[in-house]
Amino acid sequence: MQAQKELTHNEALVRLDMLAHAAVETGPLDQPPADPQPGQCWLVGSAPEREWQDAPGALACWTENGWRLSPGIDGMAAWVIDRQLWAVRTGGAWRIGEGRFASLSIAGQQVLGPRQPAVPVPSGGAVIDAEARAAIAVIVARMVAHGLVD
């Protein structure tokens, strides 16, 4: 029988609240903020100090009972409120505003896909207009292939 099981349950709810659909004020920071409010969270930097010193790369949330730190794990995501961008933990670091996709669709229409071969730079030739038209045709074909234009 566990004594005070409601405390363990409440602590689990606090952790769930901070990790599910995480939103952070800003970060990564190495210094904890001076006046945090309960429910506010931050991304911890790579050289943290004071209360965060043993948790580089963590997600830090202030609660009524002090700091709760959850280690950053590759694949985690958090909304960064002050930047209005997603932060994703990858390669052992928080990447803010970066995304990795196989393709990008908007309203069901693919607008970006896998990279195509490089467009050759026009060279040589006596008729510049023909070279320019050929280069432009290749650029347009690549844009069509990526779904950027019809």
Rank of each mutant, 00 (worst) to 15 (best):
A3T: 05
A3I: 10
K5W: 10
E6Y: 14
E6N: 12
L7Q: 11
L7P: 00
T8M: 04
T8F: 07
N10L: 09
A12T: 02
L13A: 08
L13T: 01
V14I: 13
L16G: 12
L16T: 09
D17I: 01
H21T: 11
H21R: 14
A23Q: 15
V24G: 07
E25D: 13
T26W: 05
T26F: 07
T26A: 08
T26G: 08
D30N: 15
P32E: 10
P32V: 06
P33N: 08
D35E: 11
Q37S: 14
P38L: 04
P38W: 06
Q40D: 11
Q40K: 12
W42Y: 15
L43N: 04
S46Q: 13
A47R: 02
A47P: 08
P48F: 12
R50V: 14
E51Q: 14
E51S: 08
A55F: 12
A55T: 09
W62C: 02
T63C: 08
R68S: 02
R68W: 03
L69V: 08
P71I: 07
G72M: 09
G72D: 12
G75W: 13
W79D: 10
W79Q: 15
V80D: 02
Q84A: 15
V88H: 09
F101P: 04
G108C: 07
Q110F: 03
Q110V: 15
Q110G: 01
V111M: 13
V111Q: 15
L112I: 06
P117R: 07
V121R: 00
P122W: 00
G124C: 05
G125H: 01
A126D: 11
A126C: 00
A130D: 12
A137I: 08
A137Q: 06
V138F: 00
V140W: 02
M143L: 14
M143W: 06
H146S: 06
L148N: 00
L148G: 12
V149S: 00
